[in-house]
Simulated scan of single mutants.
Amino acid sequence: MLGRSEEPLATSYDLAMLDLDGVVYVGGEAVSGAPEHLAAAREAGMRLAFITNNASRPPGRVAEHLRELGIAAEETDVVTSAQAAARVLADRLGRGARVVLLGASGLETALAEEGLVPVLVGDDDAKAVVTGYGPDVLWRDIMRAAVRVREGLWWVASNTDMTIPTAYGVAPGHGVLVETIRAFSGVDPVVAGKPERPLLDETIRRVGGDRPLMVGDRLDTDIEGATKVGIDSLLVLTGVTGLAELVAARPEERPTYVAADLAGLHEAHPAPEAAEQGASLGGWTAGVASGRLTVEGDGSADDWWRVVASASWQYLDAGGEPVDVDGVEPPLP
């Protein structure tokens, strides 16, 4: 069920749409090897777009952070869910429309760039409300906005991420606020960020590319988003997805390619050979015995992940339950 590429992905595709946290950096540090792998991808002719569901920071600040990590990036290389949300609003309402803003500076900047007018929640002439992560958003404004949404004010949400990484650990993300307003109002917002398509569409529009590849670490946002848009995807295992998550992936969450890290951009990607009870590739054979995953052989770490994914998804689709991976340890890259 994985794809096959006889050429390195950096030459098979002309645009890499790169998620940030867990792919390019983790916390405040670059993922090991990421600056070098990305520079090599550019040298191979691949365009790079850095995309994020985080609507709080303007693109210029994101690009500055990337440069501090040794990664070449300009403001125009960064596309955020705030920009995608502003595009959704402008396409429907037109320039000059007044929009209630519940969010941070990244969302305010994106609205202004599209000619929209950010206003306070009590503005009677507002045509919509847009929400995004903002640590300084007041509860009284959230309450007023929720009432206005229930009364019919059009609502666009930058994303529905339930968590956000912080210096003090994983914290509630904007998705928690979305669920609060949704539960109160009974209204579903238009969502701009992954896994919905506006952010990926906006990235292609801004950066260009005829053969885009989504590169991410999250199955339920990055990979599912690529599936919804109908483009290929590369899952890297430097972020939140581990063995337990991979073997339980729903069909829409399954990547085209799997690699341990961004070095996978510079490799051909063979597909495992399916067997009656598993898959084999490059010296590895994976199967399922009494509901438990078994892996035998030797070879590259990437091929290990490929046979495990193929055998596990075959088992999941046949029986409806994920394979037991207790005691199975992936090889080191």
Rank of each mutant, 00 (worst) to 15 (best):
V147A: 12
V247R: 03
M214L: 12
D125M: 15
E245D: 15
A10N: 09
V24F: 08
D222S: 03
L177D: 00
S81T: 07
V88E: 04
G230Q: 11
E273M: 14
L66V: 11
L199Y: 05
G287W: 05
G291I: 10
A279S: 13
V78C: 05
P35H: 14
P322F: 08
D298Q: 03
D232P: 00
G96H: 09
R292N: 08
P330R: 02
W305Q: 11
S310Q: 12
R254A: 07
V240W: 05
P198E: 07
V156N: 00
E75L: 12
V178P: 04
G3I: 01
L200G: 03
M1P: 05
Y25H: 09
A301H: 00
V79H: 01
A126R: 04
V247A: 04
W154T: 11
A110Q: 04
S81R: 03
L15F: 05
E196M: 10
E36T: 12
S5H: 06
V288G: 05
G134C: 08
D124A: 14
I231Y: 06
E196D: 13
E43C: 02
I231E: 08
D210L: 13
V31A: 11
V170E: 13
G209F: 07
E29D: 15
T241E: 07
R150G: 10
R206C: 11
G27K: 00
L138A: 15
G45D: 11
S280G: 13
A104V: 08
L243A: 09
L199D: 05
V236E: 05
E329T: 15
G94T: 13
A301E: 10
S310L: 07
D141R: 03
K228A: 12
P255A: 06
E321T: 14
V236Y: 01
R211H: 13
Q277P: 13
D201E: 15
L93E: 09
M214G: 03
G264A: 04
R92W: 05
A73K: 02
S312D: 10
L48K: 03
L111G: 00
L18W: 02
